[in-house]
Write a protein that binds this DNA or RNA. Structure first.
Lengths: 211, 211
DNA sequence: CATTGACACGAATAAATAGTCGGGTATCAT
DNA sequence: ATGATACCCGACTATTTATTCGTGTCAATG
């Protein structure tokens, strides 16, 4: 009784995820068939069954009665429930925090990001010498002016990365520096944008500020 | 051409929201009929039409092709977009952060909360002497053991509040202390639970740790 | 007081969608 | 070799679900 999720199953999960992302509701068998590129309902039925047994999704009877469970999001590497905002109060008789038993994570195009602070989960090891490890969560403060030496969230051609920002009076003048000798510096181009400064990093047991 | 959302329409919106919250997918006409307490599909059709025109929901043709739009969440007073989590990378060629421009809502049972850190927006002034003002966002680190003097997120009878935790060897021994003389201490009861420690507070222009 | 809009009823029909049957092909480990 | 497993095909049927039509009430509005 192995409970591994195969590659194909992950693909279907991705299809479901993408569908929900773009429409707001779950796909039908037919839609999944087309997106996955198979021609039989049974293919979907089988894959769904496996995903269901692995607690990756839930499926009820009826049209579009499909939902991705937390484990599914984990597998997808999709935005996870790490950062949560509830509405609470420091006032006297407290207003209810989200006691409905739920929370919500919203993600949005980072280029339109207006939040002052936000959090990102890091994958990769290019900043380990700055104390930022794979899986850590960093706290980013939005800003527009940067000082050489700051750890920044950079955005370039639709991709985002965390690196140290360096600006100096000798070549290559302005670049992004990984904190891991395995990686090379990244030069600035027209499309490089700095989104904010990483001010702290969190992992399971501690939090600390970033220098 | 008024675009106000009537009370009844809000009720339906609530029904939809609750349904999605508990099942993970949108309701059918029949389910909405029952939850709203009407016996005709047409009633739902009418209300849905209004909500659609007001950009509160979207509805496509087909079963359960229903989704709540951002405006809808706003009307509901549901948790809003303040804290954002994207998936990024510190690895070399960065993976794309959420650039689709869409957002996404995930929900989960808070009682199963496993996040190490999360953020809450504060309302109220009971902690102003600790530097936590109305509208600030605090960062909470989940933990189970607490030391007297820490600022904590406490949960009691479905309500949540931020207070300083005090435990001492004279009466009243253990209590929650507001940092504002306008308010009185709150005694511990059976139902008082401490959820985590407030480790930092943010507002528009700065962030700082909390002592 | 005629009109309009919000809300509701019930029933019939149309359509979308799920679920099922009975196979088939690879792969891999026993 | 043999079974177990993952995955797939194509067609059929059952069921769910949406949509449409025709009417009615009530309260607010000009």
């Amino acid at each position: 009784m192995k409970n591994i999720v195969t590659e194909r199953q992950k693909q279907l999960l991705g299809v479901i995820y993408d569908f929900i992302k773009s429409t707001g509701y779950p796909p039908t068998y037919e839609e999944m068939r087309e997106d996955l590129g198979v021609s039989s309902n049974q293919s979907i039925v089988d894959l769904l069954e496996k995903l269901k047994k692995a607690s990756v999704i839930k499926k009820d009877i009826g049209a579009r009665t499909l939902a991705i469970l937390p484990l599914g999001y984990k597998i997808l590497g999709a935005p996870q429930l790490v950062s949560v905002l509830g509405v609470t109060t420091a006032g006297m008789p407290a207003e209810a925090i989200e006691i409905t038993g739920e929370w919500q994570v919203l993600s949005q195009d980072v280029s339109k990001l207006q939040a002052d602070v936000f959090m990102l989960r890091i994958s990769g090891d290019s900043m380990i010498n700055a104390g930022i490890d794979d899986g850590d969560v960093v706290l980013v403060q939005s800003k527009k002016e940067f000082v050489s030496g700051e750890v920044v969230l950079a955005h370039k051609d639709g991709e985002a990365t965390i690196k140290r920002f360096i600006s100096e009076d000798k070549p290559p003048y302005v670049y992004l520096k990984p904190e891991n000798s395995k990686y090379k510096n990244i030069l600035f181009t027209d499309t490089t944008e700095l989104k904010g400064k990483v001010i702290s990093v969190f992992n399971k047991n501690k939090w600390k500020s970033v220098k």
